[in-house]
Nucleic acid binder design. Sequence first.
DNA 1: GCAAAAGTGTTCATTGTACACCCATGC
DNA 2: GCATGGGTGTACAATGAACACTTTTGC
Lengths: 238, 238
Amino acid sequence: MDIINCINQVSIDCVIFGYENHQLKVLISKSRFKGDFYSLPSGFIFQNEDIEDAAQRVVRERTGIENIYLKHFNVFGKVGRKRQEFLDKLIALNYVNQEEEYQNSDRYKWFINRFISIGYYSLVDINSVIPQTSELDESIGWYNIHDVPELIMDYNQVLQDAYHCLKSDINELSNIYNLLPEQFTMKEIQDIYETILEKTFIRTNFQKKILELDVLERLEKKFTGAKNKAPYLYRVKK
Amino acid sequence: MDIINCINQVSIDCVIFGYENHQLKVLISKSRFKGDFYSLPSGFIFQNEDIEDAAQRVVRERTGIENIYLKHFNVFGKVGRKRQEFLDKLIALNYVNQEEEYQNSDRYKWFINRFISIGYYSLVDINSVIPQTSELDESIGWYNIHDVPELIMDYNQVLQDAYHCLKSDINELSNIYNLLPEQFTMKEIQDIYETILEKTFIRTNFQKKILELDVLERLEKKFTGAKNKAPYLYRVKK
DNA sequence: GCAAAAGTGTTCATTGTACACCCATGC
DNA sequence: GCATGGGTGTACAATGAACACTTTTGC
C-alpha cells in the first residue's frame, strides 16, 4: 500500500454482511499485533480509481467476490476521528520502549491525521466465501451481528448505522437474491427476511407479498425427499 | 481559503433548496470570471472542522442561516471528477496568452486533482434569506428547479440526485417546518408538499394524514379578512 | 343571503392480517 | 392412513381515496 498513490485522509469502510443458516453475520478482522484490535474491512482510494471501485476492491480482497451490490449508507467525518489513540496503544503493546522512535518517525504521520470514512455495505452468501486476511491481519471471520467484539475507532457505531440502513433497504435490495442459488424456494427468502428484520412473517401472507413484487418466476417443484408437499422453485426474472 | 488547512481532494457540495410562493428553487452562483460558469455552493473541510460543520458553514456563508437541518444524500467519487476542464476553459477565456504560465504554476495544482464531493442538501425559506456571493462569485441567485442553467462539472447530476432524495425524505423531514413561520395553516403545509412532490392532494385527506403524524398542535383560528371560514393555526409540538 | 373556503363525516376500494382449509409427499 | 409442511382461499380489519355535507366568514 503506497499512500502516495492514494487520496489522503479518506478511507473506504465496508460492512460486509453475511447470511448463513438463519444467522446474520459481519466480517471482522483481527490485527496481527498484540492487543485485541478488531476492525471492519477498509482500504484507501487509489488516485486512478472510482470510490465505488475501491469499495469493490476491499470486498474482493476479503471475500473473493467480484461485482457485488454495494450501497453507500453514510459518511463519517468528525474532527476527532483519528487512528492516533488506537495506534498509540498498538505501539505501546508491541514496540515496548520504542514508542519515542515511532512517534518521531514520518513513517505513519499520514496515518494519524483525522480522516473521513465513506461507508458501504453489502450482503453476501457466507457459504460462497472463504475470508482472506490482509498482511496486517492475524485472522478474519464472521461474527453474529449481536455478538460483535469491541472494534477500533467508532466502527461499532458505523456498523450499527449500516445495519439500520440494510433493514430499511431490504425491499429495494433485489440483491438479497445474491445470497441464494440460481433457484430457490419461498421459504429460503422468508428465512433471510426474518433474520435480517428480526421478526416473523405469516407464511402465506409473505408469499403473496413477495410474488406481488413481480420479480420472480415460478419453476417446477423441488422434491427434497421430505415427507411433505414439494415447494415450488423460483428464480429472478430476467 | 488556505488549502493547507483543509482536507485535500474532498469537497463539500450543498444543494440549498428554497421555497417561496409555490415554487421550489435552488441556490446557484455564477463565477465572476468570463464565461458562464454556474455552480452549486461548495467549500472545503478545515482540518479542525467536522464535515457536517463544514456543510453548515457553506450554507451560512451563502444564506446567513445558522443550524439548519442538513441531510447527506450521496458521495461522488469517479476518477474523472476534476476541475481541470472547467479551469482550462476559464483560464483560456480570462487570461488570454497566459495559459502556459498558469499551467506550469503550482498555484492551482492542488485544485485540478480528481476530488470527492460529499453532498448535503437543505431546505430554507427564501424570504428569510439574502443570498451572499463569495469572493469568486459575480452573482448568486435562486433558480427554479426546472430552470437550472448548465452547471460546471457533474453538478447538474448532483442536483437531480439531491432532489430525488428530498422527495423521498419529505415525510421524515419534520424540517419542512423550518420553511414556515412559528404558526401556520394546513394549507401552507399542503402547498409545500405539492410543490416539492409535484402532485396535488385532496385537501381533506391531506389534513388527516398530517394530523396523524402527531407532530402538530392546533391553536386558535386565523382571521385573514377573507370572506370565508377562518382556518386553524398550527405549530410544531415541543 | 351568498360566495368562498375550511372542518367533519361517509362511502367505497385497496391493502394488510390472521387463519381455515385443502393438497402433495414419503413412510 | 398419517404426519408434515406447502398452496389457495376467505373473513375481517386497517388504511387510503374521493366526495358529500356542514360550518364559518365578510360583504
